[in-house]
């Protein structure tokens, strides 16, 4: 099993390293934008007034980050699976002598690991930037505010993978519907920090959807109609 994972991970790395680098650079650039924006905020006004806007009026100085995880995840999913779909190159991997479930899991876990690492790096950078200017007690609120956006990114990746892998058009639509339905509540405006009591069901949904991806892979593997 370890051999399979290592082989697939190295293949995916070779395939996606350029896109990974670009997305990472994008994330760093965004963090830099937030850094400079925040500096400017504190330049234009007294710190206690900036604190008032953020801590009392609940304005979000890192709001620009909101859709980045979802966009990054979608782009990465396309970079990972579109080359496999072109001329149905995925058949090469599907013919390898290892269980289909393990093969698929290796592909998906690779993507999830990268995206989680990317989101941790991006949100970690944002928290460090915020921690320079705001009290440390504010950081948990920022973390709980960013978490649903990151979860939306994970779900966007899984649903895009579903849409790309699934050969049947109407089943692709199911992936799209589920993606929209799960991401919409994650992008709604809530009181900052409100998500701290609701994250668990959204986290538990990730392994469910990951396991579900076996179905489009199986449909791809053995089609009944072209």
């Amino acid at each position: 099993m370890f051999n399979v994972l290592a082989a697939i991970f190295s293949k995916e790395y070779v395939k996606t390293r350029t896109s990974m680098l670009i997305l990472f650079a994008l994330g760093i650039s965004l963090a830099a934008v937030i850094y400079f924006d925040l500096n400017r905020l504190f330049m234009l006004d007294h710190p206690e007034i900036v604190w008032y806007h953020t801590l009392d009026l609940k304005q979000i100085p890192y709001g620009i980050f909101k859709y980045l995880p979802m966009l990054s995840a979608t782009v990465f999913c396309f970079c990972q699976f579109l080359p496999e779909m072109r001329d149905e190159r995925l058949r090469i991997s599907l013919h390898l002598p290892c269980p289909l479930g393990l093969l698929l899991l290796a592909h998906i876990v690779y993507g999830l690991i990268f995206l989680m690492a990317l989101m941790i790096a991006e949100s970690g950078a944002i928290l460090i930037i915020l921690g320079r200017k705001y009290p440390l007690a504010y950081l948990p609120e920022a973390f709980w505010t960013m978490l649903p956006w990151c979860l939306a990114g994970i779900y966007a990746y899984l649903c895009c993978a579903w849409v790309l892998l699934e050969p049947k058009k109407k089943t692709k639509v199911l992936g799209l519907i589920l993606g929209v339905c799960i991401c919409t509540p994650l992008f709604q405006h809530y009181t900052p920090g409100a998500f701290s009591t609701a994250y668990l069901p959204f986290i538990l949904g990730i392994p469910l959807l990951t396991v579900s991806l076996f179905l489009p892979a199986l449909h791809f593997r053995t089609r009944e109609v072209e």
């Binding site: 293949k11 149905e88 058949r91 002598p97 290892c98």
Partner: peptide, 22 residues
């Protein structure tokens, strides 16, 4: 596969190393 499909993003050495593992 038709048209000698393989993973184009690999190099000569990389594709051999990848397949050999299986």
């Amino acid at each position: 596969f038709e048209r000698h499909l393989t993973y184009n993003f690999f190099s000569i050495a990389q594709v051999e190393r990848f397949m050999a593992r299986f």
